[in-house]
Amino acid sequence: ENVVSAPMPGKVLRVLVRVGDRVRVGQGLLVLEAMKMENEIPSPRDGVVKRILVKEGEIDDTGQPLIELG
């Protein structure tokens, strides 16, 4: 899985990584606010952040691509 998608609709509060960062499975990639709760979205695998497809403050839909890993 190279693309991390939104598991729920919500607002992107914080992006915790930058392009080029090495990430490990379970590491937080970004924080979504949904139903007044903050949810940290973890990396599904080890890899390198290739692209960040959303910006802080954006509203996303379920299934929307958020981050691409390489």
Rank of each mutant, 00 (worst) to 15 (best):
G57M: 06
G57H: 05
S43Y: 03
P7L: 07
D46Y: 08
P42K: 15
V19N: 04
G57Y: 05
I67C: 04
R14K: 11
I67D: 01
V54K: 05
R45N: 06
V25G: 07
M37E: 11
V12K: 01
G47W: 05
L66S: 03
V23E: 02
E68C: 11
M8R: 08
P44N: 05
V49H: 01
K50M: 13
L53P: 01
L13T: 08
V48R: 07
L53D: 03
Q64L: 08
D61R: 14
L29T: 02
K11Y: 09
L16C: 11
L16P: 00
E56K: 09
Q27R: 03
R22V: 13
K50L: 14
V15A: 00
V17R: 00
L69E: 01
P7E: 06
R22L: 12
M8S: 10
K50D: 05
D46N: 12
R51N: 09
R18W: 05
N39A: 12
G70A: 14
V25M: 13
R45L: 12
A6N: 06
A34N: 13
G57R: 05
P42M: 11
P7I: 07
E1R: 12
V25P: 07
N2F: 15
A34G: 09
D60R: 15
L69H: 01
G28D: 03
L13F: 03
G20D: 04
P9Q: 11
V25L: 13
M8Y: 15
Q27G: 03
R22G: 06
R45F: 13
R18N: 10
I67H: 02
K50W: 11
L13Q: 04
D60T: 15
A6I: 05
E38L: 12
V31H: 02
E38F: 09
S5I: 14
G28W: 09
V31W: 04
V3W: 14
E58F: 12
D61G: 11
K55H: 12
G57L: 06
Q64E: 09
L16F: 05
L66A: 02
R51C: 11
R14H: 05
V54W: 07
R51W: 07
E1I: 14
V48Q: 06
G63N: 10
Q64D: 13
G26M: 05
G10D: 00
E40A: 08
M35T: 07
I41E: 01
S5T: 15
M37W: 07
K36L: 12
P42A: 12
T62N: 07
V15F: 11
V17G: 00
E38K: 09
K11P: 00
I59R: 08
K11S: 04
L16I: 05
E68D: 05
K50F: 11
K36I: 06
M35Q: 12
L66C: 04
R14L: 06
Q64R: 11
Q64C: 11
L53F: 15
V19C: 08
L13A: 05
R24W: 11
A34Q: 09
D61N: 12
E38C: 11
V17S: 00
P44K: 05
E68F: 10
V12L: 07
E1F: 13
D61F: 15
L69T: 01
V4I: 12
V17T: 03
L13H: 03
G10L: 05
K36D: 15
R22T: 12
I41Q: 01
R14Y: 05
V4F: 04
M8L: 09
G63D: 08
A6H: 03
E56H: 08
G10F: 10
L66G: 02
V48A: 03
V23G: 02
K55V: 13
I59H: 11
M35I: 06
V12N: 00
D61C: 13
P65L: 07
E40K: 08
V23P: 00
G57E: 06
V49K: 01
V23H: 01
L69A: 01
L69Y: 04
G70E: 15
I59W: 15
E40S: 08
E68V: 15
Q64I: 10
G26Q: 03
P65A: 11
I59L: 11
E56N: 08
E33I: 12
V25Q: 13
K11D: 01
V4Y: 04
R51K: 12
R18P: 00
V19I: 10
V49R: 02
A6D: 02
E33Y: 15
V4W: 03
N2M: 14
D61A: 13
I52A: 01
S43K: 02
D46Q: 07
G10V: 07
R14D: 00
G26N: 06
V31P: 00
E1G: 13
V48D: 03
V12E: 00
L16G: 00
L32D: 00
M35Y: 13
V4T: 03
S5D: 06
R24A: 10
L32T: 03
K11C: 08
V19M: 05
V12C: 07
P42G: 09
A34Y: 15
N39W: 15
P7R: 07
G57K: 04
P65R: 06
T62M: 13
N2H: 13
V12D: 00
L66N: 02
V12M: 04
G10I: 06
L13C: 08
L30H: 00
L29F: 02
P9K: 13
V4G: 02
G70F: 15
I41V: 10
K11L: 09
D60A: 15
K11V: 10
M35V: 07
I67S: 02
M35A: 11
L69C: 04
L32S: 00
V17D: 00
L29A: 01
R22N: 11
M37N: 08
S5L: 15
R14I: 07
E56W: 09
E38M: 10
M8P: 04
V4P: 03
M8E: 05
E40I: 15
L30V: 13
R45H: 09
L13Y: 03
N39S: 11
G47N: 02
D21P: 01
T62P: 10
E33H: 08
L29I: 07
K55A: 12
V4Q: 03
T62L: 13
V25C: 12
L66D: 01
P65G: 09
D60W: 15
V23K: 01
V48F: 13
V15Q: 00
I67T: 02
I59S: 09
K11T: 10
P65V: 10
S5M: 13
R45P: 01
E33S: 09
V19R: 06
G10Y: 07
G47P: 01
P65W: 10
E33C: 15
G70K: 12
V54M: 06
G10T: 04
G63L: 07
K50Y: 11
S5P: 08
A6S: 11
D61P: 09
T62C: 11
E38D: 06
V54D: 01
V4L: 06
G10S: 06
V31G: 00
L13V: 12
V31C: 05
V23M: 02
P9A: 13
D46L: 05
L13N: 04
G47S: 04
R18H: 10
D61H: 14
G26H: 05
V31R: 03
E1Q: 13
I59P: 06
L32Q: 04
E56Q: 10
A6Q: 04
P7M: 08
R24G: 07
S43V: 02
A34M: 12
V15C: 08
P42R: 14
N2R: 09
A6Y: 07
G20R: 05
V48W: 15
P7D: 06
M37G: 11
V48L: 08
V4N: 03
G26K: 04
R18S: 11
E58I: 11
G70Y: 15
D60H: 15
G63A: 07
R51V: 08
E1V: 14
V15G: 00
R22I: 13
R14F: 05
P42Y: 12
L53G: 01
P44E: 04
L32A: 00
V49P: 02
E38Q: 11
V4E: 03
V17W: 00
S43L: 03
G20A: 04
V23A: 03
L13E: 01
R45V: 14
G20N: 06
P65H: 08
I67P: 01
E33A: 09
K50C: 14
E58C: 10
K55L: 11
Q27H: 04
D21T: 07
V23F: 03
L66K: 02
L29G: 00
V12S: 00
R24Q: 10
P9L: 09
V54A: 10
G28Q: 06
R51P: 02
R51S: 09
M8V: 09
V25N: 07
G70V: 14
L53K: 02
T62K: 13
G47Y: 03
D46M: 07
D60V: 15
G28I: 15
L53A: 03
L32R: 01
I59K: 07
R18F: 07
L53C: 10
A34D: 07
L16M: 09
G10P: 03
L66F: 05
D60N: 15
R22E: 10
G63H: 08
L30N: 00
G26Y: 08
N2E: 11
L66E: 01
K55E: 12
L66R: 02
V48P: 01
E1W: 14
V17C: 08
R18I: 08
P44A: 04
V25Y: 12
Q64N: 08
L30G: 00
G26L: 05
V31M: 05
E1N: 13
L13W: 02
L30K: 00
E33G: 10
M37P: 02
P7Q: 07
K50T: 13
L29Q: 01
I67E: 01
I59T: 10
A34E: 05
A34S: 13
P44L: 05
G57A: 05
V19T: 06
P9R: 14
L53E: 02
M35N: 15
K55S: 12
A6F: 09
L16R: 03
D60S: 15
I41S: 01
A6G: 04
G28C: 14
V25D: 04
V3T: 11
L13G: 00
P7C: 09
A34K: 05
L29S: 00
D46I: 06
A6C: 11
G70I: 14
V19S: 04
R14S: 04
